[in-house]
């Protein structure tokens, strides 16, 4: 927050809900005029309609009864005969709950791997001195310019050589320690002053103790960003599981949804219900954790 330097004016803190008292012609950046507020909220609502509208429309379609005309020219958002029957029908068509479980297994493995592997490496690279540190760091940086799709075929060959083609573990494995996450953790650990380390060393703390008691507590924001993104990335991924998995029993949700829409169904209500099954969990995860995410953004954890 900037400091209000004008002594004639009391410091105005952004107080939600209270309209700021301002005279005409005055200006201030902690205060918002009523007119500006109205304009801002109108614009916010407009963008909200554009970003959230399609999801609501899909939700509405998934809840509309089989007898209800979903093709009406005047779109009706609220279902006339609301029903959950299509959610059951999806499960009768494809093993959608197994797919959800498969997605979850992959996501948990990827989150665990990244949180552990990336924080360990990030800590060592930023806070421990050792020969070869710069080289290792350079290797991690170098792979960032390489789009993942370029190596996806030979990655598949590697996973196949391990005997993991067509397995969920094969889907999770390559993403379990991402180079980008290592660099994010490296950056986060680096923002801690070196003096703290020196003090701990004087007190006789070894590297592991410095990692657990000094390093980790100071990078919680970045760890949550890494975890959130690893989860979302694994849950949403499509191309990689599509290449690795050939057996419909082992599909993850995204591949299963494509299977549903491509093979079985022209019923928009059914596909809508399927998409909601994949969409709602991720929204809940994100909505619950968003404050960590936005906090991480402020700490500079998101830089592309």
């Amino acid at each position: 927050m900037s400091v209000v330097t004008d002594p004639a004016r009391p410091a105005v803190v952004e107080a939600p809900g209270t309209p700021p008292a301002r005279r005409r012609g005055s200006f201030g950046f902690n205060t918002v005029s009523t007119r500006e507020k109205v304009v801002r909220y109108v614009l916010l609502m407009f963008v909200l309609l554009i970003t959230i509208g399609p999801f609501l429309w899909q939700l509405s379609t998934s809840l509309k009864g089989s007898g209800e005309d979903i093709y009406t020219r005047i779109p009706r958002l609220l279902p006339a005969q609301p029903t959950f029957e299509h959610y059951g029908a999806v499960a009768d068509t494809i093993p959608v709950w197994d797919y959800a479980k498969n997605s979850l297994v992959v996501a948990v493995l990827v989150v665990g791997g990244n949180v552990i592997g990336a924080s360990l490496a990030g800590f060592a690279l930023s806070r421990l001195q050792f020969r070869g540190r710069r080289l290792v760091l350079g290797l991690f940086l170098a792979t960032l310019v390489l789009p993942g799709e370029v190596t996806i075929i030979s990655q598949y060959v590697t996973v196949r050589e391990f005997g993991l083609a067509n397995t969920l573990f094969g889907v999770a494995l390559p993403g379990m320690i991402g180079a980008l996450n290592v660099l994010l953790m490296y950056n986060a650990f680096r923002s801690l002053p070196v003096e703290v380390d020196h003090a701990a060393i004087v007190d006789g703390a070894n590297a592991w103790q410095r990692f657990v008691y000094i390093g980790l507590p100071s990078v919680r924001g970045t760890i949550s960003v890494v975890a959130i993104f690893a989860f979302i990335g694994a849950w949403d991924d499509f191309l990689w599981p599509l290449i690795v998995l050939t057996d419909p029993d082992k599909y993850t949700l995204t591949v299963g949804l494509q299977y549903l829409s491509g093979t079985f169904s022209n019923n928009p209500r059914l596909i809508a219900a399927g998409t909601m099954i994949a969409f709602i969990p991720i929204v809940i995860v994100f909505a619950t954790l968003q404050r960590f995410f936005f906090k991480g953004v402020e700490e500079g954890a998101v830089k592309g």
Binding site: P54, F55, W57, Q58, I232, W235, D236, D237, F238, L253, T254, L257, Q258, S261, I271, A272, G274, T275, A278, F279, I282, V283, F286
Partner: peptide, 10 residues
């Protein structure tokens, strides 16, 4: 945060 698959189906 929504999967591209979900969004594309919508």
């Amino acid at each position: 945060v929504a999967s591209a698959v979900v969004v594309a189906l919508i």
